[in-house]
Computed example of a mutant assay.
Amino acid sequence: MDEHKNEDTNGFSNFHRMGYQIYQDILIRTGDRTKPKKSNYKKALSVGIKLQ
Rank of each mutant, 00 (worst) to 15 (best):
M1R: 10
D2A: 04
E3K: 08
E3D: 10
H4K: 12
D8E: 08
D8M: 07
D8Y: 04
N10Q: 07
N10I: 04
N10T: 06
G11R: 11
F12V: 03
F12E: 01
F12G: 03
F12L: 06
N14E: 08
F15Q: 11
F15V: 09
H16Q: 01
R17H: 10
R17I: 04
R17D: 07
R17E: 05
M18N: 07
M18I: 08
G19N: 06
G19A: 02
G19I: 00
G19S: 07
G19K: 03
Y20M: 02
Q21D: 11
I22T: 15
Y23T: 04
Q24F: 04
D25A: 14
D25N: 15
I28C: 10
R29Y: 10
T30L: 15
T30I: 15
G31M: 08
D32R: 11
D32H: 10
T34C: 06
K35L: 13
K35D: 10
P36R: 12
P36K: 13
P36G: 12
P36C: 12
K38R: 09
N40I: 08
N40K: 12
Y41T: 10
A44Q: 11
A44W: 01
L45K: 15
L45V: 13
S46L: 13
V47R: 12
V47I: 14
V47A: 12
G48I: 05
I49S: 14
I49Q: 15
K50P: 01
L51C: 03
L51Y: 09
Q52K: 15
Q52C: 14
